[in-house]
């Protein structure tokens, strides 16, 4: 489904990704871990098409087609969804209006009829149950005044509405308490199927107790330096990253945040 080939990317002339290779197939869950500043968030934003990052080499293929010529909205319509590490507040734009426009954009793209406010309201209420989100959030401005946990739930709500083929969750567990973590994870698990794929970026093994990965990758210095099964995450939890990094000097190229 997603093929990343020798991907290199930079921001403001600082090279952050230095040749990432990754293959994600339908039905799989991948976890990407790694020290702060290793390029994890950059990788997710490059796949989603954030304009601040320049791809300087390599390619990203989605269902066999290069994403490089597609705008961010076209990538979304193709079926890629990024759950943001820091969901953006959009004052004055209601969640319901925003999501209906997003949903209808997808409907139009797929040659399906658009749906009206009432019909969408029903869909939204149904989906809000998946992340146990109070209906009052639906009509509030997008993420405005939401707590950290509410913002992350809102990301998964959007994922539930848009039903992407590939979901990339960028540190969706950060800032969540145990209960919220369970709710969000359960939401992701409900949305998982043999036809879609999930890439989870996280610092903590804990999330992977709830969203169980088929593959775990370690990203460091803008490269994937180790891949393995679920047991790799446990090993990292126990030993940290030092044993993997050795004397590699390239660690710390990314920004670690926005």
């Amino acid at each position: 489904m997603l093929t990343i080939q020798d991907l290199q990317a930079s921001v403001n002339d600082t090279s952050i990704l230095n040749g990432v290779n990754l293959q994600v197939n339908a039905g799989e869950v991948h976890a990407i871990m790694g020290p702060n500043g290793s390029g994890k968030s950059t990788l997710s934003k490059v796949v989603a098409g954030h304009p601040a990052f320049e791809v300087t080499g390599g390619d990203v293929l989605f269902e066999g087609k290069s994403l490089m010529d597609l705008d961010p909205n076209e990538r979304a319509l193709a079926g890629i969804f990024l759950a943001f590490q820091y969901p953006v507040e959009v004052p004055g734009v209601s969640n319901a209006d925003f999501l209906r426009l997003a949903y209808n954009s997808k409907q139009v793209h797929n040659g399906q009829p658009e749906i009206d406010e009432d019909a969408f309201s029903d869909i939204l209420k149904e989906k809000a149950k998946i992340v146990e989100m109070d209906e009052s959030f639906i009509n509030r401005a997008v993420n405005e005044g939401f707590s950290g946990g509410e913002k992350k739930r809102n990301e998964i709500l959007q994922m539930a509405v848009l039903e992407p083929k590939l979901a990339i969750l960028d540190e969706t567990d950060s800032g969540l308490d145990i209960d919220a973590l369970k709710i969000v994870s359960a939401g992701v698990n409900k949305l998982k199927s043999k036809d879609n794929a999930v890439v989870v970026i996280t610092h903590y093994q804990r999330l992977l107790d709830y969203i169980k990965p088929d593959f775990v990758h370690v990203l460091a210095g803008g490269k994937i330096i180790k891949s393995g099964g679920r047991e790799l995450a446990l090993e990292l939890e126990e030993k940290g990253y030092d044993w993997l990094l050795g004397d590699k000097a390239a660690v710390g190229a990314g920004s670690g945040g926005q």
Partner: peptide, 14 residues
């Protein structure tokens, strides 16, 4: 920019 990217990343045209 970040607000704009957030909205288009959900499929809205610019």
């Amino acid at each position: 920019e970040e607000q704009l990217f957030y909205l288009v990343s959900r499929g809205l045209n610019p």
